[in-house]
Computed example of a mutant assay.
Amino acid sequence: MDPPTPDSTSREEEEDERNWQELPRDVTSMILSKLNAVEILSSAQYVCSFWRTLCREPMMWRNIDMHNLGDLWDLDYDLEKMARHAVDRSCGQLLSICIEYFATDNLLNYIIDRSSHIRHLRLVSCYSISDDGLSEGIKRLPLLVEIDLCYCSFSKEVLETIGRYCPRLKSFRLNCQGFRHPHIECDEEALAIAQNMPGLKSLQLFGNKLTNDGLLAILDGCRHLESLDLRQCFNVTLGGNLVKRCAEQIKILRYPNDSTDDYEFDAEIHDDASFDQEYPSGISDLDLLSDGDYYDFSDGSDFSEYDPSDYDPYEPHHFYD
């Protein structure tokens, strides 16, 4: 079989491009909606002119997903700059945003300044966002319906602020790593939720250190609660009147030892029994952290510069070195 000539190769490329452009607009939009922001900005928008046009429409950026990006240190992009560019493209229509690892106070402030209608905020392992940074941001997002704080480290005062300034809040997730040992009991977060989030319908407290007292406070304070996830909350002992109360009030209940097969994050249980013999009970999470346990993703990265004002939109791969 003869190899293709340059002319035939060119015709095949043109035909492929025409085929992409002949897809119905709604089908193409559905395809693009399955991609995260990095995939769209670094590749999808360069497939053809039709895709490029769609990728620049504000409606495409009503939901910005920048989590689960693999090994953060293997990416050749400045993720914070890309997030700012994605927010700019939303033109104030942003409704939902999810960021993992790299968010900072400055980035959160930038997002909120341009997106006052956000309904769903999700932060995963964002240790460079401070208590003050999140609290001040939350005060400017009164339309929030869902908030997810997964593997972050925020004080109970932040939870109180969320409850006071987000009257429409229906879903809250406060997830961390599950611990059997060291044995630490703490109901501060549970009480903050119970006292400040009365309208909740869905609550996930994966790996929380609350006790039966904290659970009772939530049941008393969140009367509209329909779904409660207590997986790996090993200080909670469901039995007797408490389990009966849960059964009467909660439609969907996940028990502390229920399967984690459908959980999206690492569900490995920390179990160091020797720790309880070396340290007294009742110590806080902050007492367990050393300087080496804090990771700052905002400075000193090896990511290449990404400045949307410096690139030609018709040339691909401007996020690479």
Score class of each variant (00 low, 15 high):
residue 18 R to V: 00
residue 19 N to A: 04
residue 19 N to L: 02
residue 23 L to K: 03
residue 26 D to L: 01
residue 28 T to I: 00
residue 34 K to P: 01
residue 38 V to K: 10
residue 43 S to H: 01
residue 47 V to R: 00
residue 53 T to R: 06
residue 54 L to T: 00
residue 58 P to N: 07
residue 60 M to W: 01
residue 67 H to F: 00
residue 76 D to V: 13
residue 81 K to M: 14
residue 81 K to A: 14
residue 83 A to S: 14
residue 84 R to H: 06
residue 85 H to P: 11
residue 88 D to V: 12
residue 89 R to A: 11
residue 90 S to W: 07
residue 93 Q to P: 04
residue 93 Q to I: 11
residue 95 L to Y: 05
residue 97 I to M: 09
residue 99 I to T: 14
residue 103 A to C: 14
residue 104 T to V: 13
residue 110 Y to S: 08
residue 113 D to Y: 02
residue 130 S to Y: 00
residue 133 G to L: 02
residue 133 G to A: 05
residue 152 C to R: 03
residue 154 F to K: 04
residue 163 G to H: 09
residue 165 Y to F: 09
residue 169 L to Q: 06
residue 177 Q to C: 09
residue 177 Q to W: 01
residue 178 G to F: 02
residue 185 E to M: 14
residue 187 D to Y: 06
residue 193 I to Q: 09
residue 195 Q to E: 14
residue 198 P to K: 12
residue 200 L to G: 13
residue 201 K to P: 02
residue 203 L to S: 11
residue 204 Q to S: 15
residue 205 L to I: 05
residue 206 F to R: 12
residue 215 L to S: 10
residue 215 L to H: 06
residue 215 L to P: 14
residue 225 L to W: 02
residue 226 E to P: 02
residue 229 D to T: 04
residue 234 F to W: 03
residue 235 N to W: 05
residue 236 V to Y: 02
residue 247 A to H: 14
residue 276 D to S: 08
residue 276 D to G: 13
residue 277 Q to S: 15
residue 279 Y to R: 15
residue 280 P to W: 06
residue 282 G to T: 15
residue 282 G to W: 12
residue 284 S to C: 07
residue 300 G to S: 10
residue 302 D to W: 03
residue 304 S to K: 06
residue 313 P to D: 04
